[in-house]
């Protein structure tokens, strides 16, 4: 996947506390095959063993993988940001990891991945921001919208932890707040 390719599509889905259930719903409703690369950035504990990618894989027809540094970003694949790293995107279409200061108390940080995708020139970018208890994602969505991308934010009133979607909407009133079935519909169209 090269970002100079106009057909290259990317979805970045961010979530924190309370995001597992809506994320599983969205992933399980995905078509069996699709054309976008889907990146999941989820706040998790740092040094505790986690098999989240296996749990998520049980809910969708495409296996969810944790990328390694410099792995190619491939269309039709789902990637979960590894624990305790920021997930970046290189202009050559590969992943890059960074083990630097937490942003919004988070590593991986949703802001860092979103700003990184904008920096790399990803044009066809859709952001989905789910439940969470801090305001990670708000600055990143601002950068994505400015660069011409789209953002769907879970309706704060429907989120288990409304602070994250609420914070993103306050900062980006032009973004779309939707319930999960609506986001699912848009997402399934976008990825094809």
């Amino acid at each position: 996947m090269s970002f100079s390719n106009a057909a290259a599509k990317m979805v970045i889905m961010g979530g924190s506390a309370g995001s597992m259930q809506p994320m599983m719903l969205l992933l399980s409703a995905l078509p069996a095959t699709f054309r976008a690369a889907i990146l999941l950035v989820v706040h998790r504990q740092r040094n505790v063993h986690s098999n989240l990618h296996e749990i998520l894989s049980q809910h969708c027809s495409t296996p969810v993988r944790e990328p390694e540094d410099k792995d190619p970003i491939q269309a039709g694949h789902i990637y979960l940001a590894p624990q305790n790293y920021h997930l970046l995107v290189e202009t050559d279409g590969n992943f890059a990891l960074e083990y630097s200061e937490p942003v919004c108390f988070s590593r991986p940080s949703i802001d860092v991945t979103l700003q990184g995708a904008v920096w790399a020139g990803v044009k066809n970018l859709l952001v989905v921001l789910l439940s969470g208890a801090n305001t990670d994602g708000a600055a990143g969505i601002a950068a994505v919208l400015k660069a011409g991308g789209q953002a769907f934010i879970q309706l704060p009133g429907m989120a288990e932890f409304p602070a994250m979607p609420g914070g993103a909407l306050t900062r980006n009133p032009e973004a779309s707040a939707r319930d999960i079935p609506e986001i699912s519909g848009y997402l399934n169209q976008f990825v094809m």
Binding site: V89, E90, T91, A96, E98, S100, V112, G116, W119, A120
Partner: peptide
């Protein structure tokens, strides 16, 4: 150095 991180730093 890898560019994404270098530019970010």
């Amino acid at each position: 150095y890898a560019e994404a991180s270098l530019h970010r730093r």
